[in-house]
Design a protein around this nucleic acid. Structure first.
Lengths: 143, 143
DNA sequence: CAGTATCCAGCTGGATACTG
DNA sequence: CAGTATCCAGCTGGATACTG
């Protein structure tokens, strides 16, 4: 636990998070946007987005091979939800054995582009985060 | 369940997700970045980021008031993790009753800016998602 | 091959009570 | 005020077995 002794002069005021005109004004929209982000920012969704953006159309099993650690159940679930949200197109080929392909829709590709900023941020600030974590652990250890 | 009859001509190939040079090349870095995004894309973290970006320094209870639905436990947990990752500065004033203030660090502010793209995407494509969901439910109902 | 179905261990997070 | 501690219901997601 940190016990920083205070500097009472801290009265910084920041700018709004970003130029999203309606965000702050309409709480209903805000809630909806949060919900969308919550669903879409999910671990596997992000990775599927990434893999499909890189490889174009892929079969179910090809996706499974490229996404280390995903279970069949979670891959199915993630793809189904992405399909429902209009992020991927699921194409069933009527052959035996079955062949199912997944591609990003335009919407899915645009989401990938939108996440780009977060990706770049994580990459660029990785070191700062590691340093901050080490400092926090040190403070904790010192009580 | 969808049973789209296939068009075998679908052989689209996309561009890489974004201009993140190292992302695709270094799997270790990729895993790390994913982990960071996973932690940071969490529901409450995003909202705290937003509220602090808008209001500057806030006390624990003020944050609680502005974040509808958050429990004391989750607010504490989220703030502690954000502090550990270097996203917020926690300042304890040595007075009775205690007074604790939270401000975004520069790192926290930059993350807010990075998430801006996702926020704008969600806002702009809200309607497309709703439409896609309705269409999916209709396909499901039709079997 | 591309799933579905079932079981279940473990994490998540709310509710409640308590405290320096 | 700003937490911590405890309990516990419910969701999450892995493992395994099965199927058109």
């Amino acid at each position: 636990m940190t016990n920083v002794i205070a500097n009472p002069d801290v009265t910084r005021y920041q700018q709004p998070l970003c130029s999203c005109p309606t965000a702050a004004t309409d709480p209903a929209l805000e809630a909806l946007v949060r919900e969308i982000i919550g669903r879409v920012a999910d671990k596997w969704t992000m990775i599927v987005l990434e893999v499909l953006a890189e490889h174009g159309a892929l079969r179910f099993s090809q996706l499974g091979e490229r996404i280390a650690g995903v279970s069949q159940k979670m891959l199915t679930k993630t793809l189904r939800q992405m399909e429902a949200d209009g992020l991927v197109l699921r194409t069933v080929f009527p052959v035996i054995p079955p062949r199912v392909e997944y591609v990003l829709t335009d919407l899915g590709q645009s989401l990938g582009a939108a996440f780009c900023g977060v990706w770049i941020w994580a990459e660029q600030n990785r070191q700062s985060i590691m340093t901050a974590r080490a400092a926090f652990r040190a403070r904790e250890a010192a009580d």
